[in-house]
Simulated scan of single mutants.
Amino acid sequence: MSGKLTELEAMVVPIVEALGYRCWGIEYLSQGRHTLLRVYIDHDDGISVEACAEVSRQVSAVLDVEDPITGDYTLEVSSPGMDRPLFTLEQFADHVGEQAKIRLRVPYEGRRNFQGVIRGVEGDEIILQVDEHEYLLPIDSIDKSNIIPRF
Rank of each mutant, 00 (worst) to 15 (best):
E125P: 02
E17D: 06
E90C: 10
L8G: 03
G32R: 09
E90D: 14
F92L: 11
S79E: 04
S145Y: 08
D44Y: 05
I127M: 14
S79I: 07
L136F: 08
I69H: 02
D45R: 08
Q91S: 03
V117Y: 03
N113Y: 13
R150D: 08
E98Q: 14
E132I: 08
K144V: 08
I15S: 10
S48T: 09
I148E: 00
D42M: 04
L136Y: 08
Y21P: 00
R119C: 10
K4Q: 10
P138D: 07
L37Y: 05
E109C: 08
Q115H: 15
N113M: 13
H95P: 01
G81H: 01
Y73T: 14
T6D: 14
H133C: 01
Q91W: 06
G110M: 10
L29Y: 11
N146T: 13
E109P: 06
L86M: 01
A51K: 02
R105F: 07
N146G: 12
L63E: 12
A18C: 10
I148F: 00
T70Q: 11
F92N: 09
D45Q: 12
Q91A: 08
K4C: 02
D83R: 00
P85D: 02
Y108N: 10
D44C: 09
M11T: 00
G25H: 05
I47N: 02
D94C: 11
D140Q: 15
H34Q: 10
I47F: 01
L63I: 15
L5S: 15
V55D: 02
T70A: 11
V39F: 00
R33I: 12
R105W: 10
D131P: 03
G25A: 03
I142Y: 13
A61D: 13
I142N: 12
E9Y: 04
E122L: 14
D42I: 03
D83W: 03
G97Y: 09
S60A: 14
D72L: 14
L8P: 01
V77H: 08
E7P: 02
G20S: 11
F87M: 05
K4A: 11
I15Q: 03
R84N: 02
D131W: 08
L63G: 14
P107F: 05
F114E: 00
R112M: 15
K101R: 15
T88N: 05
D45M: 05
S141Q: 13
V65Y: 15
L36D: 02
G32K: 12
K144Y: 11
